[in-house]
Design a protein around this nucleic acid. Structure first.
Lengths: 159, 159
DNA sequence: ACTGAAATCGCGTCAAC
DNA sequence: GTTGACGCGATTTCAGT
Protein backbone atom coordinates (compact mmCIF):
# COMPACT_ATOMS: atom_id res chain seq x y z
CA UNK A 1 0.00 0.00 0.00
CA UNK A 2 1.66 3.14 -1.21
CA UNK A 3 1.93 6.26 0.82
CA UNK A 4 3.60 7.80 -2.22
CA UNK A 5 0.95 9.85 -3.97
CA UNK A 6 0.41 9.24 -7.65
CA UNK A 7 1.47 11.96 -10.05
CA UNK A 8 -0.36 12.81 -13.23
CA UNK A 9 1.68 10.38 -15.33
CA UNK A 10 0.80 7.52 -13.02
CA UNK A 11 -2.83 8.49 -13.30
CA UNK A 12 -2.65 8.58 -17.07
CA UNK A 13 -1.13 5.12 -17.08
CA UNK A 14 -3.91 3.84 -14.85
CA UNK A 15 -6.43 5.42 -17.15
CA UNK A 16 -4.97 3.62 -20.14
CA UNK A 17 -4.76 0.29 -18.35
CA UNK A 18 -8.27 0.54 -17.04
CA UNK A 19 -9.46 1.14 -20.59
CA UNK A 20 -7.31 -1.64 -22.03
CA UNK A 21 -5.66 -4.02 -19.63
CA UNK A 22 -3.71 -5.63 -22.44
CA UNK A 23 -2.26 -2.44 -23.80
CA UNK A 24 1.36 -3.08 -24.72
CA UNK A 25 4.07 -1.16 -23.01
CA UNK A 26 4.83 0.78 -26.18
CA UNK A 27 1.16 1.70 -26.55
CA UNK A 28 1.07 3.05 -23.03
CA UNK A 29 4.36 4.88 -23.38
CA UNK A 30 3.13 6.56 -26.56
CA UNK A 31 -0.13 7.62 -24.96
CA UNK A 32 1.46 9.08 -21.86
CA UNK A 33 4.44 10.58 -23.74
CA UNK A 34 7.09 8.62 -21.94
CA UNK A 35 9.95 6.46 -23.15
CA UNK A 36 9.22 2.75 -23.09
CA UNK A 37 11.60 1.83 -20.27
CA UNK A 38 10.36 4.73 -18.14
CA UNK A 39 6.83 3.69 -18.69
CA UNK A 40 7.67 0.10 -17.93
CA UNK A 41 9.28 1.02 -14.63
CA UNK A 42 6.22 3.01 -13.61
CA UNK A 43 3.83 0.24 -14.52
CA UNK A 44 5.83 -2.27 -12.53
CA UNK A 45 6.00 0.09 -9.62
CA UNK A 46 2.21 0.51 -9.72
CA UNK A 47 1.88 -3.26 -9.70
CA UNK A 48 4.42 -3.72 -6.92
CA UNK A 49 2.83 -1.07 -4.74
CA UNK A 50 -0.55 -2.74 -5.13
CA UNK A 51 -2.07 0.20 -6.94
CA UNK A 52 -2.87 -2.20 -9.75
CA UNK A 53 -4.45 -5.14 -7.99
CA UNK A 54 -4.75 -7.41 -11.00
CA UNK A 55 -5.71 -7.61 -14.63
CA UNK A 56 -8.97 -9.17 -15.59
CA UNK A 57 -10.91 -10.14 -18.69
CA UNK A 58 -14.43 -8.74 -18.51
CA UNK A 59 -16.74 -11.53 -19.56
CA UNK A 60 -20.28 -11.04 -20.73
CA UNK A 61 -22.43 -12.91 -18.17
CA UNK A 62 -25.06 -13.96 -20.70
CA UNK A 63 -22.55 -15.92 -22.73
CA UNK A 64 -21.88 -18.05 -19.65
CA UNK A 65 -25.57 -18.68 -19.27
CA UNK A 66 -25.88 -16.17 -16.46
CA UNK A 67 -29.03 -14.34 -17.39
CA UNK A 68 -30.06 -13.10 -13.96
CA UNK A 69 -28.44 -10.67 -11.62
CA UNK A 70 -29.60 -9.15 -8.37
CA UNK A 71 -28.52 -7.10 -5.45
CA UNK A 72 -29.43 -8.89 -2.27
CA UNK A 73 -29.57 -7.40 1.18
CA UNK A 74 -29.44 -9.45 4.31
CA UNK A 75 -29.30 -9.08 8.02
CA UNK A 76 -27.76 -11.22 10.67
CA UNK A 77 -30.07 -12.76 13.19
CA UNK A 78 -29.54 -10.80 16.40
CA UNK A 79 -28.91 -13.93 18.38
CA UNK A 80 -26.15 -15.09 16.04
CA UNK A 81 -23.68 -12.23 16.01
CA UNK A 82 -21.02 -14.58 17.29
CA UNK A 83 -21.17 -16.42 14.01
CA UNK A 84 -20.54 -13.37 11.84
CA UNK A 85 -17.13 -14.47 10.57
CA UNK A 86 -18.44 -17.90 9.70
CA UNK A 87 -21.33 -16.39 7.82
CA UNK A 88 -18.93 -14.17 5.91
CA UNK A 89 -16.82 -17.17 5.02
CA UNK A 90 -19.92 -18.90 3.67
CA UNK A 91 -20.70 -15.86 1.58
CA UNK A 92 -17.21 -15.86 0.13
CA UNK A 93 -17.55 -19.51 -0.78
CA UNK A 94 -20.62 -19.14 -2.96
CA UNK A 95 -19.43 -18.58 -6.52
CA UNK A 96 -22.78 -16.96 -7.36
CA UNK A 97 -21.98 -14.13 -4.98
CA UNK A 98 -19.70 -11.75 -6.83
CA UNK A 99 -19.44 -8.99 -4.27
CA UNK A 100 -20.33 -8.40 -0.68
CA UNK A 101 -20.01 -5.35 1.52
CA UNK A 102 -21.18 -4.51 4.97
CA UNK A 103 -23.22 -1.36 4.69
CA UNK A 104 -24.75 1.34 6.82
CA UNK A 105 -28.50 1.69 6.98
CA UNK A 106 -31.25 -0.83 7.31
CA UNK A 107 -29.25 -3.86 6.25
CA UNK A 108 -26.07 -5.49 7.42
CA UNK A 109 -24.83 -6.81 4.09
CA UNK A 110 -25.34 -6.02 0.46
CA UNK A 111 -24.46 -8.70 -2.08
CA UNK A 112 -24.27 -8.87 -5.84
CA UNK A 113 -25.50 -12.23 -7.07
CA UNK A 114 -25.66 -13.89 -10.48
CA UNK A 115 -27.59 -16.95 -11.57
CA UNK A 116 -28.73 -18.75 -14.67
CA UNK A 117 -32.23 -17.30 -14.54
CA UNK A 118 -34.74 -15.95 -12.07
CA UNK A 119 -35.82 -19.40 -11.07
CA UNK A 120 -32.35 -20.57 -10.18
CA UNK A 121 -31.66 -17.24 -8.49
CA UNK A 122 -34.67 -17.78 -6.31
CA UNK A 123 -33.59 -21.34 -5.62
CA UNK A 124 -30.14 -20.16 -4.65
CA UNK A 125 -31.52 -17.62 -2.23
CA UNK A 126 -34.02 -19.99 -0.67
CA UNK A 127 -32.11 -23.25 -0.64
CA UNK A 128 -28.59 -22.02 -0.07
CA UNK A 129 -28.24 -18.50 1.23
CA UNK A 130 -31.20 -18.56 3.61
CA UNK A 131 -30.03 -21.93 4.94
CA UNK A 132 -26.82 -20.44 6.29
CA UNK A 133 -27.35 -20.31 10.08
CA UNK A 134 -27.68 -16.74 11.28
CA UNK A 135 -28.80 -15.31 7.94
CA UNK A 136 -32.00 -13.38 8.29
CA UNK A 137 -34.24 -11.10 6.28
CA UNK A 138 -33.00 -11.78 2.75
CA UNK A 139 -34.37 -9.31 0.23
CA UNK A 140 -33.51 -9.11 -3.41
CA UNK A 141 -33.50 -6.33 -5.93
CA UNK A 142 -33.50 -7.95 -9.35
CA UNK A 143 -31.42 -6.07 -11.91
CA UNK A 144 -33.45 -5.25 -14.96
CA UNK A 145 -31.77 -2.75 -17.20
CA UNK A 146 -28.06 -2.01 -17.08
CA UNK A 147 -27.89 1.76 -17.27
CA UNK A 148 -24.17 2.05 -16.60
CA UNK A 149 -21.86 -0.93 -16.42
CA UNK A 150 -18.61 -1.29 -14.55
CA UNK A 151 -17.05 2.05 -15.36
CA UNK A 152 -13.36 2.45 -14.60
CA UNK A 153 -12.42 4.40 -11.49
CA UNK A 154 -12.05 8.13 -12.08
CA UNK A 155 -8.33 8.87 -11.89
CA UNK A 156 -8.60 12.50 -10.94
CA UNK A 157 -11.74 13.45 -9.14
CA UNK A 158 -11.46 17.11 -8.27
CA UNK A 159 -10.68 18.00 -4.63
CA UNK B 1 -23.39 -12.03 -29.57
CA UNK B 2 -22.87 -15.71 -29.87
CA UNK B 3 -25.60 -18.25 -29.93
CA UNK B 4 -22.84 -20.83 -30.13
CA UNK B 5 -22.60 -22.31 -26.67
CA UNK B 6 -19.20 -22.35 -25.03
CA UNK B 7 -17.53 -25.71 -24.59
CA UNK B 8 -15.43 -26.64 -21.61
CA UNK B 9 -12.20 -25.43 -23.23
CA UNK B 10 -13.70 -22.01 -23.84
CA UNK B 11 -14.77 -21.91 -20.22
CA UNK B 12 -11.31 -22.85 -19.03
CA UNK B 13 -9.83 -20.09 -21.14
CA UNK B 14 -12.26 -17.60 -19.66
CA UNK B 15 -11.37 -18.82 -16.21
CA UNK B 16 -7.68 -18.21 -16.87
CA UNK B 17 -8.26 -14.78 -18.40
CA UNK B 18 -10.54 -13.70 -15.59
CA UNK B 19 -7.83 -14.66 -13.12
CA UNK B 20 -5.07 -13.01 -15.15
CA UNK B 21 -6.08 -10.77 -17.99
CA UNK B 22 -2.48 -10.47 -19.12
CA UNK B 23 -1.78 -14.17 -19.29
CA UNK B 24 0.30 -14.84 -22.38
CA UNK B 25 -1.06 -17.05 -25.08
CA UNK B 26 1.45 -19.79 -24.28
CA UNK B 27 0.48 -19.66 -20.60
CA UNK B 28 -3.14 -20.11 -21.48
CA UNK B 29 -2.45 -22.83 -23.99
CA UNK B 30 -0.41 -24.74 -21.42
CA UNK B 31 -3.09 -24.42 -18.76
CA UNK B 32 -5.90 -25.59 -21.00
CA UNK B 33 -3.79 -28.24 -22.79
CA UNK B 34 -4.11 -26.79 -26.23
CA UNK B 35 -1.55 -25.89 -28.89
CA UNK B 36 -0.67 -22.22 -29.04
CA UNK B 37 -2.35 -21.46 -32.38
CA UNK B 38 -5.50 -23.31 -31.35
CA UNK B 39 -5.64 -21.41 -28.14
CA UNK B 40 -5.02 -18.19 -29.94
CA UNK B 41 -7.86 -18.83 -32.37
CA UNK B 42 -10.24 -19.53 -29.52
CA UNK B 43 -9.27 -16.42 -27.61
CA UNK B 44 -9.76 -14.27 -30.64
CA UNK B 45 -13.07 -15.90 -31.33
CA UNK B 46 -14.19 -15.20 -27.77
CA UNK B 47 -13.18 -11.58 -28.25
CA UNK B 48 -14.86 -11.31 -31.64
CA UNK B 49 -18.08 -12.85 -30.42
CA UNK B 50 -18.20 -10.38 -27.55
CA UNK B 51 -17.86 -13.05 -24.90
CA UNK B 52 -14.81 -11.18 -23.68
CA UNK B 53 -15.98 -7.60 -23.48
CA UNK B 54 -12.66 -6.04 -22.61
CA UNK B 55 -9.58 -6.33 -20.49
CA UNK B 56 -9.17 -4.12 -17.52
CA UNK B 57 -6.60 -3.31 -14.85
CA UNK B 58 -8.20 -3.51 -11.41
CA UNK B 59 -7.07 -0.44 -9.53
CA UNK B 60 -7.17 -0.08 -5.78
CA UNK B 61 -9.55 2.84 -5.13
CA UNK B 62 -7.70 4.08 -2.06
CA UNK B 63 -4.54 4.73 -4.04
CA UNK B 64 -6.51 7.15 -6.21
CA UNK B 65 -7.73 8.93 -3.11
CA UNK B 66 -11.13 7.29 -3.30
CA UNK B 67 -11.74 6.34 0.30
CA UNK B 68 -15.52 6.21 0.26
CA UNK B 69 -17.91 3.96 -1.54
CA UNK B 70 -21.66 3.58 -1.32
CA UNK B 71 -24.62 1.96 -2.91
CA UNK B 72 -27.23 4.59 -3.59
CA UNK B 73 -30.85 3.96 -4.38
CA UNK B 74 -33.05 6.49 -6.05
CA UNK B 75 -36.49 6.89 -7.43
CA UNK B 76 -37.82 8.99 -10.25
CA UNK B 77 -40.31 11.65 -9.35
CA UNK B 78 -43.68 10.34 -10.57
CA UNK B 79 -44.37 13.51 -12.52
CA UNK B 80 -41.09 13.25 -14.45
CA UNK B 81 -41.20 9.82 -16.06
CA UNK B 82 -40.91 11.48 -19.44
CA UNK B 83 -37.40 12.55 -18.51
CA UNK B 84 -36.16 9.07 -17.67
CA UNK B 85 -33.69 8.79 -20.55
CA UNK B 86 -32.25 12.21 -19.78
CA UNK B 87 -31.82 11.26 -16.16
CA UNK B 88 -30.07 8.06 -17.18
CA UNK B 89 -27.76 10.05 -19.43
CA UNK B 90 -26.89 12.30 -16.50
CA UNK B 91 -26.13 9.26 -14.39
CA UNK B 92 -23.81 7.91 -17.04
CA UNK B 93 -22.00 11.22 -17.19
CA UNK B 94 -21.01 11.33 -13.54
CA UNK B 95 -17.59 9.69 -13.23
CA UNK B 96 -18.27 9.01 -9.55
CA UNK B 97 -21.05 6.65 -10.52
CA UNK B 98 -19.42 3.36 -11.43
CA UNK B 99 -22.51 1.26 -12.00
CA UNK B 100 -26.22 1.73 -12.33
CA UNK B 101 -29.04 -0.73 -12.78
CA UNK B 102 -32.77 -0.43 -12.76
CA UNK B 103 -34.05 -2.82 -10.13
CA UNK B 104 -37.22 -4.42 -8.93
CA UNK B 105 -38.54 -3.57 -5.51
CA UNK B 106 -38.88 -0.33 -3.63
CA UNK B 107 -36.43 1.66 -5.72
CA UNK B 108 -36.10 2.45 -9.39
CA UNK B 109 -32.32 2.62 -9.60
CA UNK B 110 -29.39 1.27 -7.68
CA UNK B 111 -26.04 2.95 -8.13
CA UNK B 112 -22.52 2.27 -7.01
CA UNK B 113 -20.73 5.48 -6.17
CA UNK B 114 -17.18 6.35 -5.16
CA UNK B 115 -15.83 9.55 -3.65
CA UNK B 116 -12.81 10.92 -1.90
CA UNK B 117 -14.36 10.63 1.55
CA UNK B 118 -17.72 10.66 3.25
CA UNK B 119 -17.91 14.41 3.13
CA UNK B 120 -17.38 14.64 -0.60
CA UNK B 121 -19.71 11.69 -1.12
CA UNK B 122 -22.40 13.56 0.72
CA UNK B 123 -21.64 16.69 -1.27
CA UNK B 124 -21.88 14.77 -4.49
CA UNK B 125 -25.25 13.33 -3.56
CA UNK B 126 -26.67 16.62 -2.35
CA UNK B 127 -25.17 19.08 -4.79
CA UNK B 128 -25.05 17.00 -7.94
CA UNK B 129 -27.19 13.89 -7.98
CA UNK B 130 -30.18 15.35 -6.14
CA UNK B 131 -30.04 18.39 -8.41
CA UNK B 132 -30.81 16.35 -11.49
CA UNK B 133 -34.43 17.19 -12.33
CA UNK B 134 -36.69 14.23 -11.69
CA UNK B 135 -34.41 12.52 -9.19
CA UNK B 136 -36.22 11.75 -5.98
CA UNK B 137 -35.72 9.88 -2.74
CA UNK B 138 -31.95 9.39 -2.75
CA UNK B 139 -30.79 6.97 -0.08
CA UNK B 140 -27.30 5.76 0.49
CA UNK B 141 -25.83 2.65 1.97
CA UNK B 142 -22.24 3.42 2.84
CA UNK B 143 -19.87 0.52 2.26
CA UNK B 144 -17.94 -0.30 5.36
CA UNK B 145 -16.17 -3.61 5.16
CA UNK B 146 -15.43 -5.38 1.89
CA UNK B 147 -16.34 -8.98 2.60
CA UNK B 148 -15.97 -10.22 -0.95
CA UNK B 149 -14.57 -8.10 -3.75
CA UNK B 150 -15.24 -8.35 -7.46
CA UNK B 151 -15.06 -12.10 -7.88
CA UNK B 152 -14.80 -13.42 -11.43
CA UNK B 153 -17.94 -14.86 -12.96
CA UNK B 154 -18.40 -18.56 -12.32
CA UNK B 155 -17.75 -20.31 -15.62
CA UNK B 156 -19.79 -23.39 -14.94
CA UNK B 157 -22.60 -22.94 -12.52
CA UNK B 158 -24.46 -26.23 -12.36
CA UNK B 159 -27.86 -26.39 -14.07
C1' DA C 1 -11.18 -28.91 -42.70
C1' DC C 2 -8.72 -28.80 -39.08
C1' DT C 3 -4.55 -29.41 -36.48
C1' DG C 4 0.05 -28.63 -35.14
C1' DA C 5 4.99 -27.24 -36.61
C1' DA C 6 8.01 -23.94 -38.04
C1' DA C 7 9.38 -19.29 -39.28
C1' DT C 8 9.15 -14.40 -38.76
C1' DC C 9 8.57 -10.29 -36.73
C1' DG C 10 7.81 -7.14 -33.10
C1' DC C 11 7.80 -6.27 -28.31
C1' DG C 12 9.19 -6.62 -23.51
C1' DT C 13 13.00 -6.29 -20.83
C1' DC C 14 17.47 -5.40 -19.15
C1' DA C 15 22.14 -3.27 -19.09
C1' DA C 16 25.18 0.17 -20.11
C1' DC C 17 25.93 4.94 -21.15
C1' DG D 1 16.54 9.17 -18.90
C1' DT D 2 17.85 7.17 -23.27
C1' DT D 3 19.67 4.07 -26.52
C1' DG D 4 20.68 -0.42 -28.00
C1' DA D 5 20.70 -5.50 -27.79
C1' DC D 6 18.89 -9.93 -26.64
C1' DG D 7 15.44 -13.33 -26.22
C1' DC D 8 10.82 -14.64 -25.85
C1' DG D 9 6.15 -14.75 -27.40
C1' DA D 10 2.54 -13.50 -30.65
C1' DT D 11 0.87 -14.37 -35.05
C1' DT D 12 0.83 -16.32 -39.76
C1' DT D 13 1.74 -19.61 -43.13
C1' DC D 14 2.09 -24.10 -44.59
C1' DA D 15 2.09 -29.02 -44.73
C1' DG D 16 0.16 -33.23 -43.08
C1' DT D 17 -3.78 -35.77 -41.46
Amino acid sequence: MSQIPLDSLDRKILDVLQADGRASNVDISAKVHLSAPQCFRRVRSLEDRGVIRSYRAQVQPESLGLGAMAYVSLNIDGGQFGRVREIEASIRDFPQILECHTVSGDYDYLLKVVARDLKSLSQFLTDQLMQVPGVDDVRSMICMEEVKAAAPLPVDLGP
